[in-house]
Write a protein that binds this DNA or RNA. Structure first.
Lengths: 188, 188
DNA sequence: GTCTATACTCGGATAGAC
DNA sequence: GTCTATCCGAGTATAGAC
């Protein structure tokens, strides 16, 4: 891996662990095994490097989700498979967590991938819910857009509660508690 | 308000806006209209001041929630009133947001009020859900503890999505999407 | 491309005067 | 109790040598 890539990867890790305000150029360089000269040769500064890192993280997150959404199975099966997929729960969501970072939210270039990725995710899930309603897996009274927002919120909030309690099981509980919503109500 | 109180209040605001790693003693002093001497006379340092600030915020948040939980109405009515209560959605949750702060999570004294407040909140809501199941407002198949975790997660995640999209309506959508869970399933 | 030197501000705090 | 002076390292770069 070349220096530019190592710098981006280090930045991704540090943004995940410590956020943008908590991450210094020096820390990035040390983790990447690169000097200052190298970093400032490849990137204009900390914001440019962070932008590259956040974009890569957003791409990766979308790609992973998309693979689940386009996998085999009914809409409901794919949705539940996505919800139950293995996650690094105690580290939090590497995109959602950035919403707490004041400097990320204040910079349109850093903020955009965060905004867009979560909006895209809600859209994808809304499509799955709509498909499930159409094929009769879900109750017809569900509002796909609203339900998708709730589902993504449960995950984002699940990360928060799990981190607060230092217990990954809270993420699973939060998700499990929403599953009744994804049954046909008349059936239970 | 005396200097110590002004310092705590400034710290509360800054922790909410910028988190712990993003908040400097100097910024606290300026907002409080207090000098360094004053700050270091009243508090041992930034962590001690932050501890006082976080504890006060946690107290206030619990007290507000408790007022709702002990208000008039059935369990379901009180729960929904709490969920729909007015909130400063775009600023995020002043307690939940701290879970993203690496230095808060790393310091047991700063972390404890966060952990405890969210655990307490889940417990309170679990009690409300259990009461609602008992009195027949909620479906008997609901698991109170798990459902409470889901409800708190929806709120915490609602803040995240609203901030990401810069749109408070997403919080309301997330909450609205969970309400069907709080009907009796057979009735819909 | 990468290194080292240099620069200047800020973060976080201590010391002693008033 | 509060103010000012001072301290030292860290944050965030720029400049020029190699």
């Amino acid at each position: 891996m070349n220096a530019a890539d190592r710098l981006i990867e280090s930045t991704r890790e540090l943004l995940w662990e410590r956020g943008y305000v908590g991450t210094s150029p020096k820390a990035i360089q040390q983790r990447a095994g690169a000097g200052q000269g190298s970093m400032y040769h490849h990137f204009e500064g900390k914001p440019a490097l962070a932008r590259a890192a956040i974009e890569r993280t957003a791409q990766e997150m979308s790609a992973k989700a998309e693979a689940q959404f386009q996998g085999a199975g009914s809409a409901k099966e794919r949705l539940i498979a996505y919800l139950r997929r293995e996650r690094d729960v105690l580290r939090g969501c590497p995109i959602g967590g950035l919403t707490q970072d004041p400097d990320v939210m204040a910079d349109p270039l850093l903020r955009a991938p965060v905004t867009e990725t979560l909006a895209w995710l809600r859209g994808q899930i809304a499509d799955l819910v709509a498909e499930g309603v159409t094929n009769g897996e879900f109750d017809a009274s569900l509002n796909p857009t609203q339900t998708a927002t709730t589902i993504v919120a449960v995950m984002q909030g699940g990360y928060v509660l799990a981190r607060a309690a230092d217990d990954a099981a809270l993420f699973d509980d939060a998700v499990a508690g929403i599953l009744p919503l994804l049954g046909k109500f008349g059936e239970r």
